[in-house]
Every structure is written in C-alpha cells, then in structure tokens.
Write a protein that binds this DNA or RNA. Structure first.
Lengths: 198, 198
DNA sequence: ATTTTCTTGTGATTGAAATCATATCGGGTG
DNA sequence: CACCCGATATGATTTCAATCACAAGAAAAT
C-alpha cells in the first residue's frame, strides 16, 4: 500500500471510477493530481503514431501512478489507461506537496518507490540494449516475480499474456510466442490454456 | 548543483580523487555512501559478460550518482567509472538520511532529480522498443540538448563520441556512424574532426 | 446464442542491423 | 618523435527478428 487511503481522504482526495479501456490521462498532458489505484488494473503506456503500445508499467491496487510530473513539473511521461473497470483516488498536486511536507515518513516511502521504479528501468533498458529476446523475457519475468508484481493471486506465479510481454519489451508477439515455447520446452515456465505462468 | 558542498562537508563528507578509468563502485555491490561529482566526468555503466558497456548516464560536475540503493537498500544498479581524473565527494548513507530528515527542501530537490532521471528512462525505453536507429539517436540527442546534459562548454551543443552514443542506445558503432552520416547529410548536426555536435 | 475481437499459433519471406574484416585518423603517452 | 590505442570509416556478408499471411481458440460483447 502506498499512501493510507484515510490520510488521503482527510486531506480532501476524491474517488473516481473509470470504465475498462478508459483513458485516465494522456501522455504530454499537464498534471494536477496524485493518482493511486484502489481497485482494478491500470496500464501505463506510450502509444506511437501507428497505434502500437509500449507498456511502461502495469499498475496494481495500492500503487500510485503518474508521479513523475508531480516533481519535475513536466507533462505526463506516458498515458494511463484502465485495463479493467477500476477505482482510483486522486489528490490535488498542491495538497500532495503539503502532505509530503507534513509527513516526512511518507515522502521517504515515496523516494523508495521512485528508486524501485528507476531500478526496474535500469534493468530493462540494459536488457533491451542487448537484443537477446530470450534473456530479455527471462529478466523481465524474473524481476516481476522477485518483486511480486503482476502475480496470479491463486498460484503465486507471474501471469501475463504474451501480447503484454511483447508490449513491455518492444518485441513482436510472434517472437515472444516462439521464444517462450523454447523456455517452456526447457521447463522454465508453464503454459496453461494459452496463458503464461512463470 | 545538487547538494551544497559546504553542507556536505559540515556533516562530515569527504573528498576522494579518482584516476581516469578507475572504478568508483561496482554493479551489484552494496552501497554505503551518497556520491556527488565535484570535477571530472563519471560514466554510469552496466558491463556484460563479453565486456561490452551499456551507459546508463554520463555524470557531470554537480550531479549525484549511485542514488538508487540509498533508498531501496538494494545493490548498485550499475558501476561507476571515472572517464577522466575526477574528484568526488562522499557522505555516509546514515548521515545522508539524517540530512534529508533535517532539510525537507533538499529531500524535495532530490525527488525532482529522481523524477527527471526516471523520465529520461521512460523516453529512452520507449524509443529503444521501436527499433528505429535514426529516431532513437535523434530522441537521445534532443533530450540531452533540452536538458543541457553533455553539452560542449564552448559551442553549447551536445558533444558525444559515436561510440558513446552506441553505448547509450545498444546500437553498434557502425550503425551509429552510418545513421549519423544520414543526419549529417540532412544538415541536422555537425561532425568536426570525427566528433559529433548536435 | 452468435458475433466480434483479442490472443495464440505456425510457416515463409524479407530486411535491416549485427558481424566481420580491414584501414585510417587523431590524441595521448613514454 | 614514434608508438599505441581508441574512435572513425567503409564494404561485404550473415543472421535473426520483423513482417506477412492465414488459421484457430478463447473471451468479451451484443
């Protein structure tokens, strides 16, 4: 859990319900709110001219998102789109800064989150630069597993569609499918009803 | 300038001189210090099994580096190597945290730096995923120019070797050379004595 | 229940960057 | 000054992911 919901509500944060597929904010837009996901699923994506998506992050309940412009005052670095019907809680930027000033412990927790996200980018960037699909996918899945991100609530394994893996790595679906078959043959993962469990 | 040097010295920070090529700390190593570059140049790199380097960042005087593990308590995400003879100033991790607690303004400035670095990773990651060398190089150089990073002190243009660009983008030198010749022919940059000015 | 859409799946072809080879240039060093 | 090394330069070849084409299964929408 990022920031306690009661704390946010006390300061005047408001709930917002978004439908599946709804755009919460757009890349390049200006930012006036701190966002935290209460329930559902939100993906953080860059969409290019041909409509293809690069997934920067898949946000789970309790996590914040869109935090970059809260500090550097630039535009949003990526769009946020609801994967499923979701509830988010929003706090106005100025109140958010007030909160950080009053609660150094929350500010520190925030710095930790930013560090973790930066570390994830370091890892993935290094891996993408190597142009080795098998290593890239393996590193991504291992990282997610180690950080309990995008894990199936029932079986405790990382659960992503191959399309999502493709969109997180810049590889094509076909390449991901073929590469994962390799990993599957080596017994490093389970494919059940088409879905990947790592 | 990141943190005022006098503030650091008052808290007990110490100077350290490193020779060109010297490794300041190694990837995967544990972190006990806040690092800030006083003079010289430091590159922040991942080195793979075959010895090829991926440059995460080229640090200039006044900037901090190696800050990720200060917050998430993991190992260093990359190695720091001095490009030229450099002077760094180091503050013990515990004292650094004490400083942040005492000086919310410094903590906030730090959050801003982290945001900017995270944003840079977002931009580059999205670009690498597209597999378009010309766009990747153009985006990298435009970003650096916009943020006045790695800019020539005399002519105010971004100044990098093509090898460095290759190491920052995961492209091969030959590809960068060929691509930049294109950009040069289009008049978008200047090549002088082999060096690139954008 | 049926249509539509998204995802998986697989083979054939292509294209662009990686790789290999080799040479030259320029800065720094002993 | 001569030497060396890193960076630039360029052509030839290779390789492997992208692309194309097409099919079928699963899930969501109507």
């Amino acid at each position: 859990m990022m920031i306690d919901i009661d704390v946010l509500l006390t300061l005047g944060a408001t709930y917002k319900k978004v439908a599946a597929g709804e755009v919460i904010y757009n890349e390049e837009g200006l930012c006036s709110f701190y966002h935290q996901l209460v329930s559902g699923s939100v993906r953080w994506v860059n969409i290019d001219d041909n409509g293809s998506e690069f997934i920067q992050n898949i946000i789970e309940p309790g996590e914040c998102f869109g935090e970059i412009p809260l500090f550097d005052d630039g535009p949003y670095a990526a769009s946020a789109i609801a994967d499923t019907e979701s509830v988010i809680i929003r706090l106005h930027k100025s109140l958010f800064h007030q909160l950080l000033a009053e609660r150094p412990d929350i500010h520190m927790a925030f710095s930790k989150i930013m560090s973790e996200r930066l570390r994830f980018k370091f890892v993935l960037l290094k891996e993408l630069a190597h142009h080795d699909p098998e290593k890239t996918i393996n590193t991504l899945l291992t990282y997610l597993k180690g950080n309990k991100k995008n894990v199936c609530t029932i079986c405790n394994k990382v659960k992503l569609t191959r399309q999502q893996i493709a969109n997180m790595t810049g590889l094509r679906v076909e390449t991901v499918i073929r590469t994962m078959r390799h990993l599957h043959d080596k017994g490093e993962l389970v494919i059940d009803k088409g879905k990947v469990y790592f």
